[in-house]
Design a protein around this nucleic acid. Sequence first.
DNA 1: GTGGTCTAGACCACA
DNA 2: GTGGTCTAGACCACG
Lengths: 116, 116, 116, 116
Amino acid sequence: MEFNNNIPIYLQIIDNIKQDIVVGKLKAGQKMPSVRELAGTLKVNPNTIQRVYQELDREKITYTKRGMGTYVTEEEKTISSLKEELSKKIILNFVEGMNKLGFSNKEMINTLKEYL
Amino acid sequence: MEFNNNIPIYLQIIDNIKQDIVVGKLKAGQKMPSVRELAGTLKVNPNTIQRVYQELDREKITYTKRGMGTYVTEEEKTISSLKEELSKKIILNFVEGMNKLGFSNKEMINTLKEYL
Amino acid sequence: MEFNNNIPIYLQIIDNIKQDIVVGKLKAGQKMPSVRELAGTLKVNPNTIQRVYQELDREKITYTKRGMGTYVTEEEKTISSLKEELSKKIILNFVEGMNKLGFSNKEMINTLKEYL
Amino acid sequence: MEFNNNIPIYLQIIDNIKQDIVVGKLKAGQKMPSVRELAGTLKVNPNTIQRVYQELDREKITYTKRGMGTYVTEEEKTISSLKEELSKKIILNFVEGMNKLGFSNKEMINTLKEYL
DNA sequence: GTGGTCTAGACCACA
DNA sequence: GTGGTCTAGACCACG
């Protein structure tokens, strides 16, 4: 995996994991790789993964059992609201951004269709 | 003006100026406020504005005449391509982001319409 | 190191680093000194070095890994084209300058040989 | 005439005048255009031309008679040594620059010949 | 420890 | 008055 140098690596990893959960690549209750393992796979500093899991735990997206590892939450509700939350953020970015550039609602839909 | 704490101030100012140019609030050839003046208005350090103008100059969006001040480019072409570039970036963010969340093209347009 | 007072220090440092890379004193992929370290060595403000590295990064001559440091590019191509670019600039200065003084091509080569 | 934005305009004008003198476009004793006239022709601030003449006067390349205007020096010696001085400077730049890039004397002559 | 940003304030060259 | 550079020093995010 390649990282965009302008965005903190740990945020990029968090985003990827969230996406994997949303699309079902990571399932509810599933065990995540260990800190060291994931650090090795992604070739990043273990501290960075540590921070990733810590943040995901804080958002209740994962939970960590001492000495057992980190697991995807079992609350399906959290997962489905995660999808909503992420898409809302993306949509908001889009609408606000286009608005600031002077696009009306109609124009932005048309421009989007054109692009696709 | 208020600044988002997570994004460097100078980048936010750059973005704002670009938007002002794109929507015509700042016109081609128009004189920009002086470094010190804008710094005073926005209540930031002159160095920060210096950096803003320097970056805009580098992108040919403005040009600076020694001892005279900084001006919006007179190339209408640069301005229109700026609008394209900015909107492209926003659209790309949207499409890629939604894609990664598992939205098909149709779904993302529908979700967008729903939101508006 | 001593600085020419008429040229910005950061430009002089940039030039020196480029020369060190071109002549192989700094090798591809090699770690550069940290901002603070180089600032200490050259007895300039860390901000000045910051600017140096930023500019070199922008020209793809170095790259910076967050929290890790700044490194000479690993692209040998970039380095060799850097040498070309720098020498081209010097030659152009010479030829154009001598031309403007009324030297023919033959004359300028002879005058140069004489000098050496 | 177009000015390079990175070099002070007054220096560029000085250089041009010196070149004109060296190649004989401006002759010994000849009257230079008035400050206002030259400023008009070059579309620069009269202050800038003022400084140009002041500097040329200081280098004894021109002399100014109060209320009469500015004239090219009548000392042919000054003019011929001007040519030497300017070409020396150009040659020195070339040789030192190429040296720093690791070119030997032979190499720099060959590269130069190749270019021409 | 590393780079990135920002403030405060100074001095200079330029037009 | 204008931009350009530099210092001094602080604080933060990142790995």
